[in-house]
């Protein structure tokens, strides 16, 4: 169990990046959603031992990880949001270097392990290639490989699917899910779909505060039946935004195809009920500051076991219908 209490981070300015985060994260996948600049990466860096908080505590299985981050690092797999490699090494050498520094061992030897990991992230073909010649996606995959290596108790991945094509995203989801069975995987993203697919539970951070901790199902249920979809003229959209919560507006052939949240049950003309997505729930949450009363929960524990895998299994289907 990963527990944080009253985590605060104030940068000189002053800029309050985190304003007292209390969070319990059990084993399994756990998502962290929030807009850019919400404080997700700051939170991740503090947990990874790369940033000192202003105040607050964090424990992993009862052990304080903020006082002595060096006790955490042997048990940590970390994929930061922004990172790089030594440009003149090749992928194989770089990964081997990092695995050595992480103290990773395997029965088949580290060289074989490196090859296996590269294969898992689909980089075998570029193992001998200089990192200078890697694309952004290839670098991301190599980062994933080093984050997953070893036997980490806590895996923190910050925006892991940036730069990955859809096929690679799925591959990555599978890898993460494998690991999430008996360890804590904290996934920070602003891509709602990733959370929907992978995480049985997730938290939302907004302006440094924890807004809610819930599950995808609960979130969707809280606005179920209140999402409508229709077409409006471009000049009418502003008025619509003023009257209702618009969760999506896409310009198609000169008209806005909009989705709105209307709990009154009286949507505007031309709007019909639409299936609720997690994205709708997230946007409603961000506008209202909380999920509507129906289906909303407070701080809680216990995601269902195997929830992540079940979520993954349905994600393949949902990905085709919701994107």
């Amino acid at each position: 169990m990963l527990e944080t209490r009253g985590l605060v981070k104030v940068y000189p300015g002053p800029v309050t990046a985190l304003n007292g985060i209390d969070l319990d994260v059990p084993s399994g996948m756990f998502g962290l959603l929030g807009a850019n600049g919400a404080g997700k990466s700051t939170f991740m860096k503090i947990l990874a031992g790369l940033l000192e908080p202003t105040s607050g505590t964090a424990t992993l299985d009862g052990e304080n990880i903020l006082e002595s981050p060096e006790t955490l690092w042997p048990r940590l797999g970390y994929l930061p949001q922004e990172f790089g490699f030594y440009p003149h090494l090749n992928g194989e050498t770089m990964l081997d270097h990092l695995l050595t520094l992480k103290g990773v061992h395997a029965p088949q030897g580290r060289k074989r392990l490196v090859a296996e990991l590269l294969e898992r992230v689909n980089l075998s073909f570029a193992a001998k290639r200089s990192l200078k010649g890697y694309s952004g996606g290839m670098r991301q995959r190599l980062g994933i490989a080093q984050a997953l290596a070893g036997n980490p108790r806590l895996i923190i991945v910050d925006e892991p699917t940036a730069g990955l094509d859809p096929e690679e995203r799925l591959r990555f989801y599978r890898l993460l899910s494998e690991l999430a069975v008996d360890r804590i995987v904290l996934l920070s993203t602003h891509i709602v779909e990733d959370v929907a697919v992978l995480c049985p539970r997730f938290a939302v951070i907004r302006a440094g505060r924890l807004v809610t901790v819930t599950s995808p199902g609960e979130a969707r249920a809280s606005i179920a039946g209140h999402i409508y979809e229709g077409v409006v003229n471009v000049e009418d959209l502003p008025r619509l935004r003023g009257e209702r919560i618009v969760t999506q507006a896409i310009l198609v052939e000169g008209k806005d195809r909009a989705r709105i949240y209307d709990p009154s049950g009286s949507p505007p003309d031309g709007f019909a009920p639409a299936p609720v997505t997690l994205e709708d729930a997230y946007l409603v949450l961000m506008r209202l500051g909380a999920l509507p009363a129906r289906g909303r929960r407070g701080v809680s524990q216990v995601p269902p076991a195997g929830g992540a895998e079940a979520a993954l299994a349905s994600a393949s289907t949902e990905a085709g219908t919701t994107s």
Partner: peptide, 11 residues
Amino acid sequence: TGLSQILYATP
């Protein structure tokens, strides 16, 4: 190079 974010989090 940006490797510090990864390397400094190793043991």
